[in-house]
Simulated assay, not measured.
Amino acid sequence: MTQTILVLNGPNLNLLGTREPATYGSETLADITELCRCTGEANGLEIEFFQTNHEGELLDRIHSARGRCAGILINPAAWTHTSVAVRDALAAVELPVIEVHLSNVHKREAFRHYSYVAPIAVGVICGLGSHGYRLGLEHFAHLLKSRP
């Protein structure tokens, strides 16, 4: 049985490829979606991919994962540093979470250094561009294979 990983992306990530390419790279969200689908396929995972600029929509999608998905890979974008609601939703669904960021948030403005998600996450990957998504999905495959 294939297990599903929910890959979530927060605000402004729909602008990837044109938004601050020196910081976020030239790949588009469609490129990252395809990378995730290929990585999932290679690792026996089904990938459900979602991006929104509306916090309530993200919360609803997180809630929908409970009892249905094996884990959540999330780039909360700006909500990383601002949203207790996203943190609480992730904690409430009781699934393993991996936080991912394209840029190294620790080399950027001080307000980006704190994450509400990190304390409840299995791990955090930042600064590796889209490769961070691949690494996160590969780690989920590893986690799921090692479960009894």
Rank of each mutant, 00 (worst) to 15 (best):
V97A: 08
A121E: 09
L59N: 02
V105L: 02
H142D: 14
L15A: 07
R68N: 06
T82Q: 11
G127C: 09
S146G: 15
V84Y: 11
V105C: 01
L137K: 13
M1Y: 00
L45W: 09
R134C: 15
R134N: 11
L135A: 15
L15V: 08
L6C: 01
E55Y: 07
A118G: 08
A70K: 09
A91R: 10
Q51Y: 07
I62Q: 08
V7I: 07
H106T: 13
E41I: 13
L29C: 08
G44P: 08
A42F: 05
R66S: 14
Y24E: 02
L16S: 05
G25C: 02
T39V: 07
A42G: 09
G40L: 04
R147E: 15
V86H: 06
D88V: 13
H142Y: 15
N14Y: 08
R87V: 14
L58Q: 12
H101V: 10
L144W: 10
V117S: 10
E138T: 12
W79F: 14
E27H: 02
L29V: 07
H106F: 11
G17Y: 04
Y133N: 05
I125W: 02
E20W: 06
L90Q: 08
V100W: 06
E48G: 03
T39R: 02
H106A: 12
A110T: 13
A22T: 02
E48M: 06
S26D: 00
V105R: 01
S26Y: 01
G67F: 05
I5T: 00
A78G: 15
E46P: 00
S130Y: 14
Q51H: 11
A121C: 10
P119D: 13
I98D: 07
Q3A: 03
V93W: 04
A22S: 01
G56T: 12
G129H: 04
E34A: 04
H63S: 06
L135G: 12
G67Q: 04
R66L: 12
S130L: 12
H63L: 05
A141I: 14
H101K: 03
F50C: 06
V84P: 01
S146W: 13
E27M: 02
G25A: 02
E99V: 13
N53C: 10
E138K: 12
A65Y: 05
A42E: 12
H101M: 08
L45C: 07
V117C: 11
M1T: 00
S26P: 00
G67Y: 06
H142W: 15
L15E: 03
R37G: 03
A85C: 11
L16A: 04
A91Y: 09
C38G: 00
P11V: 11
R112W: 06
G44D: 09
R134H: 14
E48S: 10
I62G: 05
Y116N: 09
R19L: 08
H106I: 07
N9A: 04
F140K: 10
T52V: 12
S83W: 03
E48N: 05
E41L: 11
H63M: 05
A118D: 11
L95G: 05
N104F: 07
T28R: 00
F111V: 13
V97N: 07
C38P: 00
N43D: 09
I47E: 04
T23I: 14
A110V: 15
V105G: 01
S64A: 14
G136L: 14
L58E: 12
H63Y: 02
